[in-house]
Design a protein around this nucleic acid. Structure first.
Length: 154
DNA sequence: GCCAACGTTGGC
DNA sequence: GCCAACGTTGGC
């Protein structure tokens, strides 16, 4: 089993929204690296830290779980969607996604500051300067450390 | 295939 | 609102 960190802007879709809807298609990812993680490496049951970007403060807000297999992102074929991609073919879709399922919301969010300040997490990708990738792999030891900082049991 | 211009992300 | 980082696009 692998661990991940997924970013979302809470103004658009927050951990509370995920809690409400229980399960959500992670659509709109238009970055090849992030797509490749979903397409080739994520497996149902993998756990992800749910990170609030562009928030005050930004930080990890809870946990989500990969809820199913990879499938083509339907928004790429929807002309009215912001994520429409005219170059993607029905018989050879360019963009793929997975669904995420709500697992838990931290009682106490772990702000980016705290991640950066923790010497055990200095190698975590989200702590590195200039990491804009919306989906990143997370090492098990880092995942467990973040849970600990949140005051949660692993 | 190079690279300048441009767009987006996301912390601050 | 600013701007650094960096991915993408398109002219050549």
């Amino acid at each position: 089993m692998k661990y991940w960190l997924i970013k979302s802007e809470p103004d658009v879709f927050s951990i509370d929204d995920l809690k409400k809807v229980k399960r959500e298609a992670w659509d709109g990812v238009r970055n090849y690296q992030a797509r490749n993680f979903m397409m080739k490496e994520m497996k149902p049951g993998d756990l992800a830290l749910f990170y609030h970007s562009n928030a005050k403060p930004p930080g990890v807000a809870g946990i989500a779980k990969v809820a199913g297999e990879t499938y083509p992102d339907p928004t790429q074929f929807d002309k009215r969607s912001d994520y429409y991609d005219s170059k993607s073919k029905q018989d050879n879709p360019r963009w793929w996604l997975v669904d995420f399922q709500f697992v838990k919301k931290f009682k106490q969010e772990v702000p980016l500051d705290a991640l950066k300040a923790d010497n055990q997490l200095s190698e975590m990708m989200v702590c590195q300067k200039g990491t804009r990738l919306s989906i990143t792999p997370v090492q098990a030891k880092h995942y467990e450390r973040v849970l600990k900082l949140a005051g949660e049991k692993a």
